[in-house]
């Protein structure tokens, strides 16, 4: 675990330093105003791009969080699968069945489409 952390932080640190050296802490103060305008193909924007962004796929993300949590039970389950045999297999059936139910319902409600 320590080596993972060491590798990750080494790569992280060196890249962070590289980017800061290149761009500086105050990236917002570098360059002339026309250079810093957002690229819109020669067009312009009146407002900041940062806004209350309407992502439209909210239900999908919430289904995803619940789903993800279910998966957290699956990891230890996979480890003892062979040991437990049929019990674990039946359990998997119940589990996947429940998940499919959730997905089917979300799909019927159109959670995966948003336009």
């Amino acid at each position: 675990m320590l080596s993972v952390l060491a590798s990750a932080s080494a790569a992280f640190g060196s890249v962070l330093v590289a980017v800061f050296l290149a761009r500086g802490w105050r990236a917002g103060k570098k360059g002339l105003w026309p250079f810093r305008a957002p690229f819109l193909g020669g067009g312009i924007s009146e407002t900041h791009a940062w806004s209350r962004f309407h992502a439209r796929y909210y239900p999908m993300t919430l289904v995803f969080v619940a789903f993800e949590m279910e998966m957290m039970f699956m990891y230890p389950w996979a480890v003892v699968f062979v040991e437990e045999g049929m019990t674990a297999f039946a359990d998997m059936g119940v589990f996947l069945g429940l998940l499919s139910l959730g997905i089917l319902y979300a799909w019927r409600e159109g959670a995966f489409r948003w336009q």
Binding site: P59, L62, V63, A66, E70, V94, F95, L98, E109, A111
Partner: peptide, 21 residues
């Protein structure tokens, strides 16, 4: 198993609350 059921209920509940229907 009851945690699993609760989570499915969460899925359904959150879809009900947040979807357009």
């Amino acid at each position: 198993e009851s945690a699993a059921v609760a989570l499915v209920a969460t899925m359904i509940g959150s879809v009900v609350l947040s979807s357009r229907r």
